[in-house]
Nucleic acid binder design. Sequence first.
DNA 1: GCAAGGTC
Length: 854
Amino acid sequence: MKLVIAEKNIAAQKIAQLLADGKPKTDKVYNTQVYRFTVQGEDWVSMGLAGHILAPDFPDEVLFDKKQGWYSVTEDGEVLPADVPDGLARPPYDTKRKPFLANGINIKGWKVESLPYLTWAPIIKKPAEKEIIRVLKNLAKKADHVIIATDFDREGELIGSDALNCVREVAPDVPTSRARYSALIKGEVTAAFDNLVSLDQDLADAGESRQYIDLIWGAVLTRYLTLARFGGFGNVRSAGRVQTPTLALVVERERERMAFVPEDYWQIRGVGAAQGQPETAFKMSHATARFTDRAAAETAFSHVDGATTGTITAVSKRSRKQQPPTPFNTTSLQAAAAAEGVSPARTMRIAESLYMAGFISYPRVDNTVYPRTLDIAGIVDGLSSNSPALRPVCQKVLSGPMKPTRGKTETTDHPPIHPTGQGDPETLDGGQKKLYMLIARRFLATLMGPATIENTKLSIDVSGEPFTASGDVLVDAGFREAYPYGLKRDEQLPPLAEGDAIDVSDIKLEAKQTEPPARYSQGRLVQEMEKRGLGTKSTRASIIERLYQVRYLKNDPIEPSQLGMAIVDALHEFAPRITTPEMTSELEDDMTHVAAGADTQEHVVEHSRALLAGMLDTLIAHKDDLGEAIADAVTADAKVGTCPKCGKDLVMKTSAKTRGSFIGCMGWPECDVTYPVPSGVKVSPIEGEGAVCPECGAPRIKCQPFRQKAYEVCVNPKCPTNFEPDLVVGECRVCAEAGRHGELVAHKSERSGKRFIRCTNYDECGVSYPLPARGKLEATGEVCEHCGAPVVVVQTARGPWRICVNMDCPDKEKKPARGRGARGAAKGGSAKGGTRKSAAKPGAKKTAAKKTTK
DNA sequence: GCAAGGTC
């Protein structure tokens, strides 16, 4: 039997289909899919790995103790690194000499001083995909030939090499070879299997060098930053070859913004309209778009101030064409989705699910050119029958020339991201459907003609001053019919001709200031990373997400936290190599040399280790400074306002006793001011105006609920601005049935700020309902027709909203909440799965409550 | 409790 090892399941399946006599059979080994087929009567089996199946790591016994973590303590209380086995450490840091322990290091200092050990510690490959390895070994034992058919790139060669090492453990003598194909199409794959070669160990070594160097630098610097001032578990301060330069980009942009000196300028703007037709109003502005001289602006304005008429002096029309977009690859999909409010990381999670469900093609690609083999018409046809919303435009595309656009990057491994045309989009959830429609519409747009936009420019004379007005009208939608994303609204101008008089009103002189360079959006940052060679299509999204997770970044557009800036500053000073994209480009050069056999993995890795070791003395010497800088930055990030009592900072704190968070004064214990933290929201300070509550003097804070609009409130729950009198909303049915009288009353908890309805006889009946966190409540006196619970009206930003307060109401069961942002269940508060008692069945508290939460 | 790279 011949065993074919591919990098991923889809490749294993494709290869089987392309090589098989007849149809391959899908089989399972343990729980993993494999494909069995015959080639000229011979039995073959193909399996997909899941990318890298081994992960480089330090051996457990080196600098890692299962109980102590990154350090360990000896029996006599001395803090030491976990033992380094003899012969593992390398010069110049010899384990036996322990040079860094010579001058009596205190316990707090120890952890960082141990880093030299780590720099030279050995690295082993640990199994990362145990199930896959099990299947691989199982099949390898039965194989008489093993063919590595992983992707044709450096990582693919490494993945193949790792797989081969696993195979060798159980089948040391089985012949092995390598199939190199650069496209999963018949000609390529059959040619590759007809011309088998052997695995390129140099190329695999090059990839492995990358793994080692990334781990060494990442682990040493991450441990250094984390331990310089240990902030407790969950407070890792990470660093890495890709993440740190990426963070530095954001910090650099923020610094540019801070250094930016705004310049004053003035604009004169007004409103024009065809004579006597106010409904044709359009915006117009002075021909000098920006006056940098105030006096000149005021002089010009004095001529037109209060003007009511103007004259058209010229009309010019120009039409321009907007070319249809190029096919999506990973980066352009991430950028387009980010513009629609979906982060790159979420985009990739959703894309993966769409791919797995058969709705779209493989989502990790650089390619932006459809291969000739792609059945474009077939896909459009499929879209047409499965997506009624797209049917008209699909029919239009089918009747047109269907000449697809091409992007700049052409590779042959996978086609650009496109819909398969299969599957019913109605079965998708909100996020999936949104992304699917973006991908489907983009695909259609790439097959359509340009959009034609007609621009009209009016030159207007108002009391001797020149004004202009401009309007864009889409005269031929072209691809825009399929792809409305990022489309500007038409600015229609009335039909006017030279010499026409117009009405003019509202002419104003506006003082403005130039804006600093804009912050990166997540989409822009992904593109910038690509431009600078940072990360790959598969990693950029998750690396940005990681920077948010370690709280170096916040908000979108992206801002660095104080912590993020402190980290970049420190590394820039003491380990500058890790902060720039050059480390990646130099690594690329090294890998090229290793792959070409001009250098060795050992040499390249040792050289990188030595560079890092050269920085360690300085890093360690400045450990305390850095620790302090990090602590200060963390405090600054935690600030939510100023203490009304003593003027010190109010910060987010964690209670040592309950582990819960609260807002407390930095002046503690002298000052005892504390506030509760509003639950379920991200809290941030308000700068400048509105920072202090005019009612009570406590700080006002910005609250950002998950995927909902942010709002500002006073932190003080006892403040009159937060106070709402208790409201009777109805009568308790449970009590009524029991022959008691109970009233249902809406309360707001002073401690948590949560709102809920509770029966006045709660101790006996246990009736309580959660309420939406915000919005003025009104009682209706009505009860729900489905469950008998009271109905209330909540005033929301979108207007009044009538709800039955019972989250377990059968009416809600019929339309279960989908995802977190769904109306109804989420607004009522049940999506968070809080504890509450069921009103319908007071006895069975938990069972009933569960249903609507998931 | 570390990175970045694959992919599930």
